[in-house]
Computed example of a mutant assay.
Amino acid sequence: MTNENNCVLANGCMGAGTAACTKHCTAFIQMHGVSGNGGRSAAAGLPREYRLVTLQNSPARGDQPEAYKAAYAYASTFNRQFDQQSGSVAAEDRIKSLYLVSEKTGTGKTTTAAALLNEWLRVHYSGSLRRGLTPLQRPAYFLDVNEWQTEFNLATMANDDEGMAEFQWKMKLAMSAPFAVLDDIGVRDCTPAFRGYLHAVINARVTNQLPTIYTSNIALDQLWQVFGERRLADRVGDLCREIEFVGESKRGMRR
Rank of each mutant, 00 (worst) to 15 (best):
E49P: 12
W169N: 14
S176N: 04
R195L: 07
R230S: 11
T150M: 14
R94C: 10
P65N: 04
S88R: 09
A60K: 00
C7T: 13
A113V: 05
K69S: 10
E151P: 13
T107G: 06
R241N: 10
A90W: 05
A67C: 01
P47N: 08
L223A: 10
S97R: 01
L46Y: 03
K109R: 10
S176L: 02
L232K: 03
S102A: 04
A193W: 07
F167S: 04
T150I: 15
Q30G: 08
C13Q: 04
F179W: 00
R241K: 07
D160Y: 00
T105L: 05
V246D: 10
F152L: 09
H32S: 09
S86Y: 02
N159A: 14
N118R: 00
T215M: 02
Q84N: 07
N208F: 03
V206G: 04
W169M: 14
E151G: 15
A60P: 02
R80M: 06
N79Y: 02
G196V: 11
E92G: 15
P178C: 12
F167L: 09
K69W: 05
A73M: 13
G87I: 08
P192Y: 00
T18I: 03
Y99G: 08
E162D: 15
G127F: 03
S249C: 06
H32G: 09
V8H: 00
R255C: 12
S97V: 06
L55K: 01
K69Q: 09
L52A: 02
C13E: 09
E147P: 05
C240L: 01
A193V: 12
L220Y: 02
N208H: 08
A155P: 14
V236Q: 01
L136Q: 10
N208A: 08
H199V: 06
V246E: 10
Y141Q: 02
Q225I: 13
P135Q: 02
L173F: 08
A204M: 11
K170W: 01
N118K: 01
R231Y: 09
E66I: 05
S102G: 13
G15N: 11
T207V: 05
L133P: 13
R254W: 04
S249D: 12
R51V: 15
L100A: 05
K104E: 14
D93M: 07
R205V: 10
A60I: 00
A177H: 03
A19R: 12
H199L: 09
R51K: 11
R255Q: 15
T134H: 03
F28V: 14
R255D: 15
A180M: 01
F227D: 03
D184F: 13
I218V: 15
D184V: 14
C7W: 04
T156R: 07
E166D: 10
N3G: 12
S128H: 03
A140Y: 04
L223G: 07
G237A: 05
Q137N: 05
I185P: 10
A165L: 08
L129Y: 04
N79K: 04
R131D: 08
V8I: 14
T107V: 09
K69E: 11
L223M: 11
T54L: 01
T107S: 07
R131H: 03
E162G: 14
G15F: 09
R195D: 13
I202D: 11
G17V: 07
F227W: 10
A43T: 06
Q225Y: 08
Q168R: 12
F142N: 15
